[in-house]
């Protein structure tokens, strides 16, 4: 059998940085790779959801590792609401092109025609139509039977009980009582026709783990995660970045240049910035260790009651 001369992938990763990864990150990395391989071995048509955020960057990095020296044997799917930060789209296209990966971009055209947008339709309608419905459309259209997502159990209380392999009915519903027990590493991957699964290889990671791993492995992320002077306005107590002319100012609002960064990335009018001097990854890690609000705090869709995420999930929101 012929052998190969590694390493060929992961331009960002070198032997040296890998060796420095803490033991607990190694354990999480091995677990995530194991899960990804399990899906590829068990399903006919998997897809990896790629939202361009830091978790997606980690997922992509792990996928490159899991199937090396092959490229990941599945396409990447970005559900584009057309309201992402411009820097995200630039980053996405570069990340995919550089590695020759297969990217599918899906937008809910029907929603666009109806003029759904985060500014006037409200965050929950926008999220439902342009994200939840759009995702279902894309999964149905391509008949994907397994979709990787980057969600973590530490993000939100109702996610703490989410399984790694999460089963969805044919209409993408999630029933918290009908989830399968996950024993040892023996995942039950059997589904009926029409049913699908969402798989969360980062289930056991925390926000701090993600940042540490990004730092240790030298993973590229969208620069918006690092502090820089950016044009922002303050609206309802949240700092919003004015990313293009669609964000029209309300009376009294002024655009200021402030030193800010983002803890999560989504649609720019729905994503709050935090003031920060963390211009390097190391500084971000240090800030995250000491942070006093949860990551989802900056996401406006969660601003209602605690059970909201669970309800969204039942309806098919990732």
């Amino acid at each position: 059998m012929s052998t190969i001369t590694p390493p060929a992938i992961a331009a960002e990763s070198t032997d040296a940085t890998a060796a420095q990864s803490p033991a607990h990150l190694r354990r999480l990395e091995n677990e995530a790779i194991h899960i990804m391989r399990e899906v590829v071995a068990s399903f006919e048509k998997p897809v990896m959801l790629y939202s361009i955020g830091k978790d997606s960057s980690v997922m992509l990095h792990l996928a490159l590792k899991a199937f090396y020296p092959a490229t990941p044997p599945f396409p990447f799917l970005h559900v584009d609401t057309t309201w992402k930060f411009r820097e995200m789209i630039t980053f996405r296209d570069a990340a995919m092109a550089k590695r020759g990966l297969d990217l599918i971009v899906h937008t809910n055209e029907e929603g666009l025609r109806q003029g759904i947008n985060p500014l006037t339709s409200g965050s929950s309608v926008h999220t439902d139509v342009m994200k939840t419905q759009a995702l279902k459309q894309a999964l149905d259209h391509h008949r994907f039977d397994a979709a990787f997502g980057g969600a973590r159990r530490d993000e939100e209380k109702s996610r703490a009980k989410e399984r790694i392999f999460s089963f969805r009915s044919a209409d993408h519903g999630w029933d918290p009582r009908a989830q399968r027990p996950e024993l040892w590493r023996l995942f039950n991957t059997r589904v009926e026709r029409g049913q699908s699964i969402r798989v969360f290889p980062l289930s056991n990671w925390t926000e701090v783990d993600i940042w540490q791993y990004i730092a240790a492995e030298g993973i590229e992320i969208v620069p918006l995660y690092l502090a820089a002077r950016r044009p922002v306005i303050e609206r309802e107590g949240t700092l919003l970045m004015v990313d293009d002319e669609r964000l029209t100012l309300r009376p009294g609002e002024v655009v200021e240049q402030r030193q800010v960064r983002f803890r999560t990335l989504g649609c720019y009018p729905l994503t709050g910035a935090v003031e920060s001097d963390a211009t390097t990854l190391e500084a971000v890690v240090a800030e995250t260790v000491g942070v006093r609000t949860s990551e989802r705090h900056g996401r406006l869709i969660d601003a209602d009651e605690a059970a909201s995420m669970e309800r969204k999930k039942r309806e098919g929101y990732f």
């Binding site: 059998m1 190969i4 590694p6 992961a10 990763s13 890998a18």
Partner: peptide, 10 residues
């Protein structure tokens, strides 16, 4: 075993 392969080297 001829080789052990990971993305970080052999």
């Amino acid at each position: 075993i001829a080789q052990i392969i990971t993305a970080d080297g052999a």
